[in-house]
Design a binder for these strands. Structure first.
Length: 565
RNA sequence: GGUCCGAUAGCUCAGUCGGUAGAGCAAAUGGCUUUUAACCAUUGGGUCGAAGGUUCGAGUCCUUCUCGGAUCACCA
């Protein structure tokens, strides 16, 4: 411990003499240099606790703790908390207490009957993080999902599990360890279940083992981490705060990402069940194409070529349709070298899928059905509250871009050039409920088939919800000659200064020349959909580790070298 | 990049008209040991984001800078 501290001290000594710490603390429980070298009283106290625990138990970072089985499964805190004996005991106690006056104790015989049943469960072995400060003899442990109260009795038999090398031995003295524990430490306990007077099932600890130390103070249990930057930058601490927090509005950070996982699982399930095959196409590509966006550039040393992080998997997936994958999807990241905003992260997750022999109408039907099923799986319903709106996924409107503009701006002068501008300004913010906008101008849809009835219009749709573009799909252009001409047109715009016009991909033209069946495809922005389902207003709140400015020192010397953007 | 708002104890925040730096929680010490958001008592903890200016005196007023948030423009 001392050696480690000295090393840190030596390494950072120069920085410590500057006016500012090299690790920016920003009002958070993250150590500055002073704190790392031990001048912060709270960290110093934890170090002292660690050393005292080491003297007591030996190895303070043991390699494992085997959680026994209560009813077939592993004894996680969640499993115990949700098990039938615990749930029914708490329900019965709640019923008893409902019939009692304020402060009145439950009848001893009824409580004893409950305890009798709880003892029948036998010994439980659970492990977790201490979520409440260790005053008194009750604390809560959490596995990140559920909390379970544990109880240590000073007088009762309370054994200490020591961790000496590979050996674990059991001795008296658990109370001595109990008194050294800090908020946030990990412990494992063995004991029996009992009912407290206040109606909470707890574990009466018979054996106590120390499992890991929290050297930094835990985030505030009432407020969590309030600063959005710190929540995103120190996501691990934010997630801990999720499990500690007593009161919160809406979903905790953990719940947001659980919901995200459910949505994605629901979409995979839907596509797998409908005969789609999941594929992975290159993320590092020689051409950044398939969408209108600026790419990230990198360099492959051995080949000595420039590669681009993909901006869309579209053209690769359609090559697979050419190759005979009639139903294919990819669910992964795309990268666009553009500004950051509430709705834009440099890397974002998109689901793209393609279905042979289908057109744009069929794709809209499919999109609607898939979204409904996966929204239902993620949230348990089809209506979500977002800001002041109630968004109803049970019906998706379809309206042409022209009609939508006329609805909100009846006197609009609509032509190919003005259409998109009018749409963005007057229509988009009004599209709160799920709405498919159809009949896009062909000129801005270079990969899309034209409508046979009106060749100036593309068979393309975009799905809008709460004023955000969520999905984009079309009948895929499969005429190689026309596709070549559309690319050529894009390249002309590019030369005219439009950096985001699409790049010609000759190999894709070759692929189409082998023949691609009629097909429809779609891309769905997963992050934005998650925002809607979790009532989050920033994309950074639905991405675990969103991109941030690098954390750095504020030392004056370094300011001069920082690029002004 | 433009505009607006913000930065005070480890955390969440007060700080009036410019006049000795505050609370709750967290921490330490002692007490208590079936508690329920955070048991009771005591104690420690601050270069008020940085630099400069006005003033007898600046957390407070002015300028510049840093960092963050909101918003606008491009983008999914």
């Amino acid at each position: 411990m001392v050696g480690r501290a000295n090393r840190i001290h030596g390494k950072l000594y120069l920085a410590a003499n500057r006016s500012e710490p090299i690790i920016k603390t920003l009002n958070m429980n993250i150590p500055s240099v002073d704190e790392i070298i031990g001048q912060n009283d709270q960290i110093a106290a934890r170090r002292a606790s660690l050393e005292a625990i080491a003297a007591l138990v030996g190895n303070v970072y043991p390699n494992k703790f085997v959680r026994s089985r209560v009813s077939g499964g592993e004894d996680t805190i969640t499993a115990v908390k949700n098990s039938d004996p615990v749930a029914s005991a708490e329900a019965e106690m709640a019923e008893i207490k409902a019939g009692l006056a304020e402060g009145e104790r439950p009848p001893a015989d009824r409580k004893e009957a409950i305890n009798e049943r709880l003892r029948g469960v036998g010994t439980v072995r659970i492990a977790g993080r201490l979520t409440t400060p260790t005053r008194g003899n009750f604390v809560h442990l959490t596995d990140g999902i559920a909390k379970l109260q544990v109880y240590a009795n000073k007088k009762g038999p309370l054994a200490l599990i020591k961790n000496d090398g590979a050996e674990t031995t059991v001795e008296d003295g658990g109370w001595a360890l109990w008194q050294l524990l800090d908020h946030g430490d990990f412990i494992g306990v063995e004991g029996y279940l009992f009912m407290t007077n206040t109606g909470e099932v707890s574990v009466h600890i018979e054996k106590l083992q120390f499992l890991a130390k929290a050297m930094l103070p835990m985030p505030d249990k009432m407020h969590g981490i309030a600063d959005p930057e710190l929540r995103r930058r120190y996501r691990y601490a934010d997630l801990i705060a999720s499990s500690l927090q007593v009161e919160h509005d809406g979903l905790t950070t953990r719940e947001v990402f659980e919901r995200r996982a459910k949505l994605i699982a629901g979409m995979r399930r839907y596509l797998d069940d409908h005969g789609y095959i999941e594929v992975e196409t290159p993320m590092l590509t020689p051409k950044a194409t398939g969408a209108a966006a600026k790419p990230f550039e990198t360099h492959h040393n051995a080949l000595d070529i420039t590669l681009y992080a993909r901006i869309a998997p579209e053209l690769y997936l359609k090559r697979l349709v050419v190759g005979g994958f009639e139903k294919v999807y990819e669910l992964n990241r795309n990268f666009r070298n553009e500004g950051l905003s509430q709705r834009h992260n440099p890397e974002f997750t998109m689901l793209e899928f393609y279905c042979a022999y289908m057109d744009v109408e069929g794709m809209m039907d499919l999109c609607e059905q898939m979204m409904q099923e996966s929204v239902m799986k993620a949230t348990g319903g089809l209506v979500v509250e977002y800001e002041q709106n109630r968004i109803d996924f049970s019906k998706f409107e379809r309206i042409s871009m022209r009609d939508a503009i006329l609805r909100y701006k009846p006197d609009a002068d609509i032509n190919d050039r003005t259409m998109i501008g009018l749409f963005d300004e007057f229509v988009e913010p009004n599209l709160i409920q799920p709405t498919f906008i159809v009949d896009f101008p062909k000129s801005i849809s270079p990969l899309s088939k034209a409508n046979p009835a009106d060749t100036s219009i593309a068979e393309r749709f975009e799905l809008f919800i709460n004023g955000m573009e969520i999905a984009n799909g079309f009948s895929e252009l499969n005429d190689p000659k026309e596709q070549y001409e559309r690319f050529a047109d894009q390249m002309k715009q590019r030369e005219g200064g439009d950096e985001e016009a699409m790049v010609l991909d000759e190999d894709y033209i070759r692929a189409l020349s082998y023949g691609m069946p009629p097909a429809a495809g779609i891309g769905i922005g997963i992050d934005r959909l998650v925002m809607l389902l979790t009532n989050k207003h920033s994309i950074r709140d639905v991405i675990l580790f969103p991109h941030m400015r690098p954390e750095r020192a504020q030392a004056p010397e370094e300011h001069e070298t920082i690029e002004k953007s």
